[in-house]
Design a protein around this nucleic acid. Structure first.
Length: 275
DNA sequence: GTGATAACCTGCTCGC
DNA sequence: TGCGAGCAGGTTATCA
């Protein structure tokens, strides 16, 4: 499941391969989630950026057009890759959801088995069609995200801290894997509804830590995630909590507990992470 | 504005 | 071997 580290890994791989190329044509799978794809045709790619889990490809059209952005969310199973010498053949991949033909003969392909991903072409910076992106919280490394800001956000609401981390509002880019890891490291119970100053400071720090390490390890591959080269990440070998229900806690030895929090599979240590 | 819930979607696993 | 049920989960829509 692509979260911030996985999207950042893909971004870093795609940037040098796409910058300066011109999208000559676009194809989309017939679903409203992807039908924006052909709208990128005719534009030069001037940047490959990221906000939270969204990939933002800057498009610079002819002089009479305003700058636009191709927004791609990988959803659960989305993969982006650059295919050599695509030509103009019809898509031969049953799970291909969008393809952008480039002026050098290559193509940028978006493959997404479960169709949880999404593609949009919007005027640069105008995200009103993408509510989550429009309301996205600060990046984890933004000074605006710290213990006090996280505590203020959580304590002003009645929802579980894990649910709020996944909402993308207090901080951008956290998904189920890194939420469990950050909460375990900070020794905060996922169903806490309030944070002390110390807990909030720890949690803000561990959110940054686990995401930084995730990027350094090329992302986490549990089942579907592959980078732009089709390779698996390595961060799954460094997980302390997520998916380890029934196994001993790396900190205290207690058996980790697997449960469900707001419909999300959740693992935590009942000893280290007391409510 | 906030919170709760269902729907989307399909490969995989498990039990029968 | 084949079938059906349940599960995985990020985002969006809907309702209270």
């Amino acid at each position: 499941m692509p979260e911030l580290p996985e999207v950042e890994t893909v971004r870093r791989q795609l940037e040098p391969r796409l910058l300066g190329t011109v999208v000559t044509e676009g194809w989309s799978f017939p679903s409203p989630k992807f039908t924006d794809a052909p709208a990128a045709a005719g534009a030069r790619i001037t940047s490959v950026a990221r906000r939270g889990k969204y990939l933002l490809v800057g498009l610079h059209g002819p002089e009479d057009q305003q700058h636009r952005e191709l927004v791609v969310h990988l959803g659960m199973t989305g993969r982006l890759s650059v295919r050599a010498a695509a030509g103009s053949d019809l898509p031969d991949d049953a799970y291909l959801r969008a393809r952008w033909y480039l002026d050098d003969g290559r193509s940028l392909d978006f493959h997404d088995v479960r169709r949880f991903g999404r593609v949009a072409v919007v005027p640069a910076g105008e995200y009103t069609r993408l509510a989550t992106l429009a309301a996205l919280g600060p990046e984890p490394w933004d000074p605006a995200f710290d213990g006090p800001s996280l505590r203020a956000y959580v304590n002003a609401r009645r929802r579980y801290v894990k649910t709020l981390l996944l909402s993308q509002r207090p901080v951008a880019g956290v998904g189920n894997i890194y939420a469990d890891e950050a909460l375990w490291r900070a020794q905060v119970h996922p169903q806490s509804r309030r944070l002390t100053r110390a807990q909030a400071d720890r949690l803000a720090g561990t959110v940054r830590e686990v995401l930084t390490e995730g990027v350094a390890n090329g992302g986490t591959t549990l089942r579907d995630y592959r980078d732009a080269d089709g390779a698996e990440g390595a961060n799954q070998h460094h997980l302390d909590c997520y998916g380890r229900g029934g196994q001993p806690c790396h900190r205290c030895g207690t058996e980790l507990r697997a449960t469900v929090v707001d419909a999300r599979g959740t693992t935590y240590c009942p000893t280290c992470q007391r409510r």
